[in-house]
Simulated scan of single mutants.
Amino acid sequence: MLKDQFNLIHIREVMDQLDVSRSTIDRWRKNKQLPSVKIGKEIYFDKNEVMRWYREFGQVRRTPSASSSDETLIIGYTTVSTHMWSPLIIKEFGLLEEELKRIRSKDKIEVKWHKAKDGMELINWMIAGNIHIATFGDYALSVSHLVGTLLPDFRPILLAAAGKSTNGDGFGMVVPTDLTLGSISELATLPIATTFRTNAEYRLRKMLESHNMPELNIIHRSIEESMESLRQGRLSASIMWEPFLSLVHHQKIGKSIFNQELGLGFMAGIVADERWVLAHEDLAVAYLKANLLANRLIRDQPNRVAKIFSAETGFAVEVTSLSISKIRWDAALYYKDLKMLNYFEPVQHLGQISPSKEQMEIRFNTRYLRIAAQELKLPALPLTPLDGAWQKELYY
């Protein structure tokens, strides 16, 4: 028979093997492009293709509680950078709760939000198991990965990108508007303020080392202190990032210079512990779907979300609006993103550890983002990160 010749199995056999209903199979065919063939009035599937597809795109697994259907999902976030603001939209519009009700209508899942002062606090909470999913910056992501090479019970994995900016847009050195510097060598006469043990300090030191200037006068101050010192004329230079770059320009406190020389662009990422993800795949996909919807809102309704960001951060709407316009709101992972993340070597946080190159490469998994994108009927993502430059017309 034709079906035997081409290794085809009937839809009922698929239902029996995967232990799912006919309506589930029909939904997969319609929404997730499960390959099938119709012969007469009957529907058949290639057996090998079904198993391959199911491993990749089938129902995400869930580990039910032995004692109760109640569960708590804790999301960590910080507002220290514009690149990390998408959780604010997820929270404000209830996007995660809405998705959880859809997939777990009979369960009571409480969503809690933990606002941290910075990425390092988020890492500590994740290690302790007090945060399930977090969004933090590229340097903190590198630190978390390095910690994961030392702690066997902590395996952070990158699930998707958050906000991104290109080289020269995410970071800048801010100086008074009346100060003119012709070259980086002229920084030798100035004290430069930066935040302690952050990607700002890392980028500054890498820039200075590349110009054989490692011994400059670097002082550690919070970015708020640097802002006020610049305003009062008591500081010559400070390393800043969005939204503070937009703020100093809006308030005419200073101007940014040497943006390109400070290195690569900036990218925040969505991270979870791999073991937690494996036990709660449906929750991970639900959050990524909420994030995709949040990105769409930011792109399509910038004026509306700028007001939300303003209320949360205390910055003027004009500042938040300008800042979010400089960010690419795209969850897709590109190889260029991973290359940038692997640029960091945050060993100063962990003493004299010298990890190998393989240990330092950021671990990622694109499977859950692919499922989330498919369920939202977005263009199919490949099995691996995207090649080449960011695509101008393709956003997730």
Rank of each mutant, 00 (worst) to 15 (best):
A294L: 05
A188Q: 03
T384A: 10
D4K: 07
N342I: 11
F309M: 14
P214Q: 08
G263W: 03
H132K: 09
Q348H: 13
L288R: 08
L338F: 06
I157L: 07
G233D: 11
S238G: 06
I270C: 10
G182Q: 05
V20S: 07
I89Q: 13
I11E: 07
K117R: 12
H250A: 08
K377I: 11
E56K: 13
L150Q: 13
K115S: 07
M15E: 14
N365H: 12
L18N: 04
L122Q: 08
G314I: 02
Q374D: 15
N303V: 04
K108S: 15
E224P: 02
Q352F: 12
V175N: 02
H211G: 04
G388W: 12
G172M: 01
L34M: 06
S185N: 10
I75S: 04
I257S: 00
V175S: 02
Y287L: 06
S238C: 14
M360R: 15
A66K: 09
E98Y: 11
K106Y: 08
S69F: 05
S142G: 12
P243H: 04
D16N: 09
E110L: 11
S246N: 15
S321T: 12
A160I: 01
N130P: 06
I43V: 15
N295F: 15
L333C: 11
L338I: 05
K38E: 01
S222F: 09
I371C: 11
I90Q: 09
G94V: 14
G94A: 12
H280T: 01
I39W: 04
K30S: 09
I131F: 04
P382L: 10
T189L: 00
M267S: 08
A372S: 12
T313I: 09
E71D: 03
V285Y: 06
F309R: 06
H249D: 10
K101W: 07
G265Q: 05
I192V: 11
D169M: 03
L292R: 12
L293G: 05
H145P: 10
L141R: 07
N31R: 14
W390K: 12
S65K: 02
R102L: 14
V20N: 08
E98H: 15
A188W: 00
N124H: 11
H249W: 02
L95Y: 10
S142F: 00
I270F: 04
G170T: 02
N259D: 05
N365T: 09
K91C: 13
T366Q: 12
D387W: 08
Q359C: 03
V174G: 01
R328K: 13
S142A: 15
R363G: 05
A331I: 06
T195R: 08
G76M: 04
G172D: 01
